[in-house]
């Protein structure tokens, strides 16, 4: 459903993406791994048009992703995004954060939006926190609210950009549990992560990004256990060492 075809992207003089291609089928979970600065976030941000790309093409179910086109807003409602730093709206309660999109973007009736939001909060294990403000929650709880906020739009796919990297180690598990649940339900997911055990267990496919190119990709078990590329081997050795 997501098709990335040979995209290039430069920030000023720096080429950040040098011909990245990636197909994600409906229901598939793809993990993007790679060293910092290799372009993982940029790939995700291009998929939902938070960033433009210079050449190549990205389509969602055949519809082109183009920041300058007015259908970009509607497209974004179909592809959710979860950020490393949660990015909840601090002036709104947990419930309001989740209802914001359905009510103000989709025009859902408030009662319906509330009911859906409550069921999503229950799903991420935060039903009792619906009246709290984001600052009253731990990082792990905030990230689960952010996932509920993305789910509230009933997206066809969700992009995760290092969703557990800003969390204290003891809070990572709850977030990964929610993500595992989504994968099991058949949600299409593209996940940038350094959690190799999560990737191994949940990902259908792993792509290793290096210097703006996917230098190795394949089934999670193969890429993570028997990497062929020297860069991948080197990267995995360093990640798994610490």
């Amino acid at each position: 459903m997501i098709a990335i075809d040979h995209i290039h992207k430069a920030f000023g003089a720096t080429q950040v993406l040098k011909g990245v291609s990636l197909e994600v089928a409906a229901g598939e979970v793809v993990c993007l791994i790679g060293p910092s600065g290799s372009g993982k976030s940029t790939v995700l941000r291009c998929i939902n048009g938070l960033e433009s790309y210079d050449s190549g093409a990205i389509t969602i179910h055949g519809q082109t992703v183009d920041v300058r086109r007015s259908d970009i807003h509607a497209l974004r409602t179909r592809v959710g995004m979860v950020f490393q730093r949660f990015n909840l709206f601090p002036h709104r309660t947990v419930l309001e954060n989740v209802m914001e999109g359905p009510i103000f973007v989709k025009g859902e009736p408030r009662a319906e939006a509330r009911q859906h939001a409550q069921s999503l909060l229950e799903k991420v294990g935060l039903a009792e926190k619906q009246a709290a403000y984001p600052t009253q929650l731990s990082g792990g709880q905030q990230q689960r609210v952010a996932i509920a906020r993305a789910l509230a739009m009933r997206p066809e796919a969700i992009l995760f950009d290092e969703p557990t990297s800003a969390l204290d180690p003891e809070l990572v598990g709850d977030v990964l549990t929610v993500m595992r649940g989504l994968a099991a339900e058949g949600m299409t997911m593209v996940v940038v992560t350094h959690e190799m055990s999560f990737a191994k267990e949940v990902a259908d496919r792993v792509c290793f990004l290096y210097g703006g190119q996917i230098v190795e990709e394949g089934p999670a078990s193969r890429v993570l256990s028997e990497p062929q590329n020297a860069r991948t081997q080197d990267f995995l050795r360093r990640v798994l060492d610490h």
């Binding site: 995004m81 601090p90 989709k106």
Partner: peptide
């Protein structure tokens, strides 16, 4: 207002006028 919040708002499909009204101005 942290730009991350504005990106989060965009990512749920909000347009800039709505982001101004619902996210930026109240804060």
């Amino acid at each position: 207002i942290d730009s991350g919040q504005i990106e989060a708002a965009k990512s749920i499909g909000m347009k800039s006028a709505l982001i101004m009204r619902r996210v930026v101005l109240p804060q």
